[in-house]
């Protein structure tokens, strides 16, 4: 069996809120193989957001190990984490998080700016990705001029631009109506079918049902893991 793309071993993360300490993650073990499409579910406060932040290298665990693509990233410095984000991770957010002042093409190419990619090549790649998500004719538009579904498509294209080893999606359909949400889910499934690894946080059962494997969190631990379903 090949090395997993992502492996968490006994990961802990606590926040102090005033006098009390909140143990957001209390010993999480999780292994995700290349090409999996995993949905992370759980009630609010179960630690799924904290988990996603950790997976996204936006945060560091207090204890435990996080191996990303075989590299332990739990102990890396801030700049090194930035490097990991720009080279190996793709993000999709609930509220799209596009930069309003940039057009579609620039938004898609943003990770490449920080990855040190040549501008001409970045533009070319961005254009191809815009086409891939069906927005080839909207490359000059600003995010404000697009519908929610279109904005999320831009965000998905952006998450692909640096050719990441894993895509992290945080409630990608949370701000969309059901029909548009289904379109976005179809797109994610397409990406999965192409061999991408996707970890998606959601609290909707029917959205989670479209993933290959569902991990349920509760009180900072993995409560249930369906494993890969057919």
């Amino acid at each position: 069996m090949p090395a997993p793309v992502l492996e968490l071993r006994g990961v802990q993360r606590a926040y102090s809120m005033g006098d009390t300490t909140v143990r957001a993650l209390d010993g999480v073990d999780l292994v995700i193989q290349k090409g999996e499409f995993v949905a992370v579910m759980g009630p609010s406060g179960s630690g799924k957001s904290t988990l996603l932040n950790l997976l996204g290298c936006l945060d560091r665990p207090d204890a435990g190990q996080y191996l990303l693509d075989g590299q332990d990233v739990a102990t890396l410095h801030d700049d090194e984490l930035s490097g990991i984000r720009s080279e190996r991770l793709g993000f999709i957010f609930q509220s799209f998080n596009l930069i309003q002042s940039l057009d579609v093409l620039q938004n898609i190419g943003l990770p490449l700016v920080y990855g040190g990619c040549d501008p001409a090549e970045a533009a070319q790649r961005s254009r191809a990705l815009a086409q891939r998500v069906g927005l080839g004719d909207r490359t000059g538009h600003r995010p404000m001029e697009l519908s929610g579904g279109q904005q999320q498509r831009v965000a998905i294209a952006r998450s692909l631009s640096n050719n990441p080893v894993i895509i992290l999606a945080d409630e990608p359909t949370g701000n969309l109506d059901t029909r548009t949400g289904d379109e976005i889910m179809a797109l994610l499934r397409e990406l999965h079918a192409e061999g991408r690894t996707i970890v998606m946080v959601t609290h909707e059962d029917d959205i989670a049902a479209k993933a290959q494997r569902v991990v349920t969190m509760r009180d900072g631990r993995v409560q249930h893991d369906t494993g890969i379903r057919a």
Binding site: G56, S82, S86, L98, L110, N162
Partner: peptide, 9 residues
Amino acid sequence: IRRALGAMR
């Protein structure tokens, strides 16, 4: 957003 997408401090 910029930080999440890989911008260093």
